[in-house]
Simulated scan of single mutants.
Amino acid sequence: MSNLKSSAPHIHGATAFADVLDWGQQPDMVEGVSRSSGRLLFKGPGNSPEAGVWECTPGRWRLSIPRDEFCHFVKGRAVYRSDEGEAIEVRAGTCVLFPAGWSGEADVTETIRNIYMLV
């Protein structure tokens, strides 16, 4: 259940929320064919802040974070590897703040879901 038109947009049960939209294949694939889906909770003026639910199937791709992004992972397993070689393992219960400009690879081994906010 959700109310995205509320004065305070909200999604009940976001960890298992099924009313997600297909957001297509991840760009910059290195291995596999990851597909993303999700639900936008809020997008402010100039696209900041932006918050929502995001899910992605297994695969590996390059990424570069354009704005500070906070992620609370609630499902799945992945490893994010920075261009400097740091490995950040994520699974349900992991919170990560990717600062603007962070770049590297994501390697999803089990479909992940996170609740995110970009600022």
Rank of each mutant, 00 (worst) to 15 (best):
L63C: 13
V33W: 08
A100F: 06
I112R: 01
Q25C: 14
P27K: 11
G38M: 13
H10Y: 11
G32F: 12
L40D: 08
W102H: 15
M29D: 07
R67G: 03
S6R: 09
S103K: 13
P99H: 09
T111H: 06
V119G: 12
V74Y: 00
W23G: 09
L4M: 00
E110F: 00
G44Q: 03
C95D: 13
A18F: 06
D83L: 06
I65T: 10
T57Y: 03
V20G: 09
W54P: 03
V108Q: 08
E105N: 05
L41G: 14
S2V: 00
F98Q: 04
P45M: 08
D28S: 14
G24K: 07
E84A: 11
A51R: 08
D107E: 15
G52N: 05
I112Q: 00
T109W: 00
V30K: 15
V33Q: 15
G24V: 07
F17H: 14
N47D: 15
E31G: 11
F98W: 14
L97I: 15
G104I: 08
P58Y: 02
I11Y: 02
V74Q: 01
C71W: 02
D68R: 10
L40A: 10
T94M: 06
R81E: 08
H10T: 09
Y116E: 04
G38S: 12
P99C: 04
V30S: 11
N3L: 06
A92G: 14
F17T: 07
G46W: 02
L21N: 12
T94L: 09
N114A: 08
M1I: 01
C71E: 01
P66G: 06
L4H: 00
E84C: 00
D22R: 09
A51V: 13
A87G: 01
V74T: 04
W61S: 08
A16D: 12
M1H: 05
V53S: 07
P99R: 12
I65H: 03
V119K: 13
R91W: 03
F98G: 10
V79P: 00
D68E: 12
E105M: 10
S2A: 13
E50C: 13
V108R: 05
E110I: 01
R91A: 13
L41F: 11
A16W: 06
T109G: 05
S7Y: 02
Q25V: 15
W61D: 10
S6Q: 04
I115T: 02
T15R: 04
G32S: 15
E105P: 05
V20F: 04
E86K: 07
P99G: 08
G38Y: 05
I115D: 00
T109A: 02
E84V: 01
S82R: 03
F70M: 13
S103R: 14
K43Q: 15
G104L: 07
S103D: 04
T109H: 02
N3V: 03
V74K: 00
E89V: 13
S37M: 08
T15L: 01
T57P: 10
E86M: 05
E105F: 07
R60T: 13
E50Y: 03
R35G: 12
L97T: 13
K43F: 03
S34F: 03
F98D: 05
G59H: 08
L118K: 04
T94R: 11
G46Q: 07
H10M: 09
G13C: 03
H10R: 10
K75M: 04
N114F: 11
